[in-house]
Design a protein around this nucleic acid. Structure first.
Length: 380
DNA sequence: AAAGTCC
DNA sequence: TCATCTGGCCCAAGACTTT
DNA sequence: TGGGCCTGATGAC
């Protein structure tokens, strides 16, 4: 996933486009998150020891629910309004990449079997993580959980990252939170990394603005997309011998992949056969996304429903769930006091006009900017 | 901080 | 020589509570 | 799975 080496490339060549932010500064903001990516992480790490995970009485995994539940509460307590976006059907060009992952999981499964036979605990630990796959059922369970929590869910027609970017482009959310750099390639105007980290670690939230990236790299969005493709993306191979630096130089020099292909020494650089860079470009530029979604709303939690689902069906501790529900309600009250959208920073500079998707009607969620000196103390 | 628990 | 790309290796990927 | 760090290979200057 993602664009190879893009973080470093931007750090070296567009440092002003990235800005350290505090977790707290997103109070009152709507943030889109790729749900499947989160679920994947939870399945790998939450409560896992070797092949053991958290499970309900039926022996079904509940790690993803535990992770999703805690994280979402954490976000709500920070006054953040999360929108979870679920993957739809992957584009054909990603089939290769997905096949690669599938075969790696196969390999890991074999190695895991061997490790189990040999009783090698370290190896079991290592390989069991590599066999993790997010299933339809995991996704559906998380959707159910989030709806019970009163948190909006969006079902993307295709790639969740692309849908997240589209929500942001159309002002339905303030930013996209992801670890995946291709959010920028999809054109998410504001993109946050490490939003979830800061509690335990000291890594600050890193905010990228695509407009500043373009400004500083002196590229158009189309050129930036070409740069990402050349650097290496999920949709097609890159050219051997061309990494981020060279790609940037070439794009600046020639302006597009077509022009580069006309001008570079083809003996020196081996162009892949059947290189679908144009198709890849189209997937970034005009991804299959929808804006035809229900209004994003953060409702009160369904307390009975949560108890039924988490406690009765999945063996969660009654007390903990009850307390967690209280946290949600408290967080809701707090943020509905500040409902008139507090903001702590002077408004974002939209110096460079962002490219909008062609949308006839804009949901015009014009955020009321009202000063609210809310929520002083963060619970610690 | 480190270790243990969540289910 | 210097810069850059590559490939190999290692790691870590949650969040909360208690000690 | 990606990212950081290291090494060695290979052009670029």
């Amino acid at each position: 996933m993602g664009i190879k080496g893009l973080t470093k490339l931007l750090a070296d060549n567009a440092p002003k486009a990235m800005k350290e932010q505090k977790f707290e500064s997103y109070f009152g903001r709507r943030i889109a998150v790729d749900a499947s990516m989160s679920i994947y992480q939870f399945l790998i790490v939450v409560g896992r020891t070797g092949m053991e995970t958290l499970t309900n009485e039926a022996g079904e995994v509940t790690s993803h629910l535990q992770g999703m539940f805690n994280r979402t509460i954490r976000l709500l307590e920070a006054g953040i309004k999360p929108v979870y976006v679920f993957d739809g059907k992957p584009p054909d060009l990603k089939k290769q990449e997905l096949a690669k992952r599938y075969s790696k999981r196969e390999d890991a499964t074999k190695e895991l079997t061997e490790a189990v036979e040999e009783g090698d605990k370290d190896a079991i630990e290592k390989f069991s993580k590599r066999t993790v796959k997010v299933t339809k059922q995991h996704n559906e369970e998380c959707k159910r959980l989030l709806r019970l929590m009163g948190v909006p869910v969006v079902e993307a027609p295709c790639e969740a990252e692309a849908e997240c970017a589209a929500l942001c482009i159309n002002d339905m959310v303030y930013a996209v939170a992801s670890e995946d750099m291709d959010s920028l390639t999809f054109g998410a105007p504001r993109f946050l990394r490490h939003l979830m980290d800061p509690s335990s670690k000291k890594i600050p939230v890193m905010e990228f603005e695509v407009a500043k990236v373009l400004e500083e790299l002196e590229l158009t969005m189309d050129q930036f997309i070409d740069l990402c493709i050349l650097s290496g993306c999920d949709y097609c191979d890159s050219i051997k011998g061309i990494g981020g630096q060279t790609a940037l130089k070439l794009i600046r020099q020639h302006g597009s992949i077509e022009s580069i292909l006309e001008n570079i020494n083809k003996d020196r650089y081996q162009i892949p056969e059947d290189w679908p860079y144009q198709e890849a470009r189209r997937l970034f530029k005009e991804p299959n996304v929808t804006l035809d979604i229900p209004e994003l709303k953060w409702n009160a939690p369904d307390e009975e429903g949560l108890v039924q689902f988490l406690v009765k069906e999945n063996g969660f501790n009654q007390d903990r769930v009850t307390k967690a529900i209280e946290k949600i309600k408290f967080a809701k009250n707090k943020s509905s006091q500040g409902r008139l959208e507090s903001f702590f920073k002077p408004v974002v500079s939209t110096s460079v006009p962002l490219k909008r998707k062609d949308t006839s009607e804009k949901p015009t969620k014009a955020v009321a900017n009202k000063k609210t000196k809310g929520a002083g103390g963060k619970k610690k």
